[in-house]
Design a protein around this nucleic acid. Structure first.
Lengths: 261, 261
DNA sequence: AAGTGGTCTAGACCACGAT
DNA sequence: TCGTGGTCTAGACCACTTG
């Protein structure tokens, strides 16, 4: 159905804001329409072909503009269905100064979260794991990988590695990892996290149901026992559009030695 | 000069790893070559046209593969010059549990950092600023915006807002903002930061000298005086490829009331 | 001036979703 | 089946950097 004359994209030829490449003009035009509320979350945009005709550019140029808006989370594209203004997603917050279980944390917020297992097993450790966990030669590593979701939207991928001496049966972890560790007397008391932003690669993007290249948070965490021993090395990838991390800072000297693995 | 037969991209037609769209095959092929060390940081890739001929795809397809690798920080493109394997960039670390001055922090690491002023002045506050800083009606806001650089590489954009009652002369801030506040007896003792990942928009990307759509860290910070009053509201944008934030977590209950602005 | 990346086009076919 | 987004092509011109 060619969008006859309804709503924002109604009538004939349109005037793009001037300046710079066509695809940026078009991008600004759409972006402004969204921010002004001329088109609302959930609304469908005209098809790429219609848009191309309307603003008199090629479809390739339309796609270039739309791609950037999709990457910035303004639009959503569904193959075979259409292009839509992204719904306002509620951001999830997580404290950066207190070690809390993901499961417990979300339950406290009244959010229903679930996890899908991606992997649980014993493996030859990677060099990185060997160093991080201080494994001795020949020792295996237990890996558990989960996809965290709330409802149907994926939130994060979590890949945890532990020495098999701490977690001999990774298959036995059924819910919270910390709860499991707790039962064997291995609850960590302290952790160091490294956080950085990166564009998501193919595989992670697919798991998180966002387009490749979207911004994500990569977090590396080392958890320590009271004894000072590292028991958990976790690499997580969070969707940039659904997560806020909150940290409380206090004045003082920089973290004393030991902040590096 | 058409890359005759030197190095990795030497001889005739090549075999792309199978599976999926052409541009992803090509992307994997280049990515693998970089990770295996077949091509090293700083090395130039063949021109897009040459690559297209060699692997027998169109130039558009080559660009699509290269674009993703540029966004992921694997490659760097220089208009008019060529495409190169990205140099290993040293990541900067910043603690998330201690409030330190950016300037002091970097100096301690022996890194030469400088800042360029983007803006300093008094303005009508935005609604967001009014709420965050608790401004009374008619009160102006002092804004200072800086671009942080080390050598020639931009690290971050910092936009700070303060009540004019705290900073009546924003033009008078010459180096560290905290040093300046300190002199007037207004040093914050505590701050809350919200961190999230987002793809950088046009303007910020240009300032940080990365392609639009690259991942960046958006950080919002509220700094508090000992009295509990908010004195600073700062929004910063960090390059995803040069920054690591480090947080130390301790076990315990979630941050008690007050974590929200 | 030559070579590079940056933009843009018109048209084609495929894969998926709704009908 | 039809309309949508996803991929791909061959060719053109512009803007920039470098010898």
């Amino acid at each position: 159905m060619s969008n006859s004359s309804s709503g924002f994209f109604g009538d004939g030829p349109v005037a793009l804001p001037p300046g710079g490449p066509l695809y940026l003009q078009l991008k600004r035009w759409i972006e402004d329409a969204v921010h002004r509320g001329d088109i609302n979350p959930g609304d469908a945009l005209p098809s790429e072909r219609d848009l191309a005709t309307k603003v008199d550019v090629s479809r390739v140029t339309v796609r270039k503009a739309v791609l950037q808006l999709v990457q910035e989370g303004v639009l959503i594209q569904k193959h075979g269905s259409g292009t839509f203004v992204a719904p306002r997603t509620q951001r999830v917050e997580q404290s950066l100064s207190h070690l809390t279980s993901f499961t417990e944390d979300m339950a406290r917020r009244g959010m229903s979260v679930r996890a899908e297992w991606l992997d649980r097993g014993r493996y030859e450790p990677s060099p990185e794991e060997t160093v991080a966990l201080g494994l001795s030669a020949g020792e295996l590593v237990a890996r558990i990988a989960r996809l965290r979701l709330t409802g149907d939207t994926p939130l994060a991928i979590e890949r945890a590695s532990l020495s098999v001496s701490v977690l001999p049966e990774p298959e036995a972890v059924v819910d919270s990892l910390y709860r499991h560790l707790d039962r064997s007397g291995n609850r960590p008391v302290r952790a160091l996290q490294r956080i950085r932003a990166a564009n998501l690669g193919e595989a992670d993007a697919r798991l998180l149901q966002v387009p490749a290249g979207s911004a994500g948070l990569h977090i590396e965490r080392l958890s320590y026992l009271a004894s000072g021993r590292v028991i958990e090395f976790t690499r997580s990838v969070y969707r940039g559009d659904t997560y806020d991390f909150v940290a409380e800072l206090r004045i003082g000297a920089p973290t004393p030695g030991g902040a590096r693995a």
